[in-house]
Simulated scan of single mutants.
Amino acid sequence: MENDSVPQEITTLVGREVYTNSGVFLGEIEDLRLDLDEQQVTGLALHELNDELFAQEAASARGVIVPYRWVQAVGDIVIVNDLAERVQQAKVDDEDENEVRA
């Protein structure tokens, strides 16, 4: 990410949609996780989640937190790397493996 841009209020992130770098919608930023000692954003709290990716999380919680280190770009939308999709795929693979064992 560009560090030479004009600083913005972190609250401007709230309400922006979050997508993976391959174009998969993850959710909308509802809040931010901050490290007050380091004075930096450490995570994005998402709500309005993509039901296909986060069905279990959407049913049992208000949202999910995406680590800020996954963020690749911030503009009108936020782009995160595809680790989010890999994490979801790992869940699916684990569920499939458990079904085969049962």
Rank of each mutant, 00 (worst) to 15 (best):
E30P: 00
E99R: 15
V80H: 01
A45H: 07
L26E: 10
V24D: 10
R101I: 14
N21I: 10
I79A: 06
S22Q: 15
A55E: 13
N21Y: 09
Q88C: 14
V24T: 14
V92L: 14
V18P: 07
K91P: 01
R16D: 00
S22D: 15
R33V: 09
D93H: 12
T20N: 03
D4E: 09
V24K: 13
V41R: 05
R101F: 11
Y68M: 13
Y68T: 12
Q72K: 13
V71N: 06
V66R: 05
R62G: 08
D37T: 09
G75P: 00
P7G: 06
Q8V: 15
T42N: 07
S5L: 10
R101L: 14
E48A: 10
F25K: 14
S5K: 10
A58G: 00
V66W: 02
N50R: 11
V78M: 00
T11H: 07
E30V: 05
V100H: 00
A102S: 14
V66A: 06
I77V: 04
L36N: 02
E9D: 14
L53N: 14
L36Q: 00
Q40K: 12
Y68I: 09
V41N: 03
R69H: 12
N98S: 14
E17C: 05
W70M: 04
E28F: 00
A73K: 10
I79D: 05
W70C: 05
V80I: 08
V71G: 08
A61F: 01
L32N: 03
S5T: 09
E52N: 11
A45N: 05
D93Q: 15
P7R: 04
D51I: 04
I65H: 04
A73V: 03
D93C: 07
D35V: 05
N98I: 10
P7V: 07
V41G: 06
R86P: 02
Q88N: 15
A55W: 02
D31H: 04
R16V: 00
E17A: 13
R33K: 10
V14P: 02
L34V: 14
L32V: 04
L13G: 10
V100E: 01
R101M: 12
A61P: 03
G15Y: 04
Q56G: 12
Q8K: 15
E2H: 03
G63K: 01
A45D: 03
I77A: 01
E9S: 14
Y19V: 07
H47Q: 13
Q72A: 08
N98R: 14
V78T: 04
A73N: 08
E9P: 11
T42C: 09
A90Q: 15
V78Q: 04
M1G: 07
A55S: 12
E57Y: 04
V24W: 09
S22E: 15
A45V: 08
A84C: 05
E52I: 03
L83N: 06
D76F: 01
Y19W: 15
Y68N: 11
